[in-house]
Amino acid sequence: MTGRAPRLLVGLLAACLAGSSAPAGDMVDKRSGADFMSPENRAMQADDMSNPGMFAVLDGEQLWNRPEGANGRSCAGCHGEAATSMRGVAARYPAFDERSERPIDLAGRIGECRRTRQEASPLPHESPELIALTAYVAHQSRGMPISPPQDERLAPFRDNGRRLYERRIGQLDLSCASCHDARSGERLGGSVMPQGHPTAYPLYRLEWQAVGSLQRRLRNCMIGVRAEAFAFGAPEIVELELYLMERAAGLPLETPGVRP
């Protein structure tokens, strides 16, 4: 306990400093996880013909145009061409959801739209269909800077996300910040620790051999530090996403990314 006190103090001090002046989005030399990858993996992401994440985008395009649910309506039936209607949307999520009066992430919004507008059966978290639709919508914002909404109602949730980011958890007693702020660029085992900016989700992770969401990645990290992971869709995990997007503000979206 005594050994941890100085660390905790330093952490708190850093948090206070960061909290009092610069917003999280102003981190200097902000870099996408792609910058920390090998040239080979960067090349795999850069070329749409070799990026396996593109399969999710192509599936999403089909689902976008397919009528679903009691209304027999497709996403395109209301939103038209995703290339125009969805451009920039993913860069602004998570956003405030009027109905639940909480932040909602992009996959959550798609699920809500499906439930209330299409009156279709819900798509489970991390199901290939939901991943595909999310990837397709997010792909429309590729290259656009992450631009979190200036919505005061989100502030308390974002603050909570930040607290979660900085809170030490699990048997390894690590916070997100312990690795991704204090030690980014250094190695953990054989892996380089990136700054932890969620610029490319849903993304194809070689470890998964599949496309997955930011929530899946966050749960991975929590399992990694031997903590009990938040459930998919839990309020806390969305708050964490909200804070991470604020922290990544200005970085261009890359969906679908490739990561080791």
């Binding site: 085992g189 054989g190 892996s191 470890e207 899946r216 749960r219 991975n220 399992i223 990694g224 080791p260």
Partner: peptide, 9 residues
């Protein structure tokens, strides 16, 4: 082959 530090259960 470097081993990944964080492997999903």
């Amino acid at each position: 082959v470097t081993l990944a530090a964080c492997v999903e259960d």
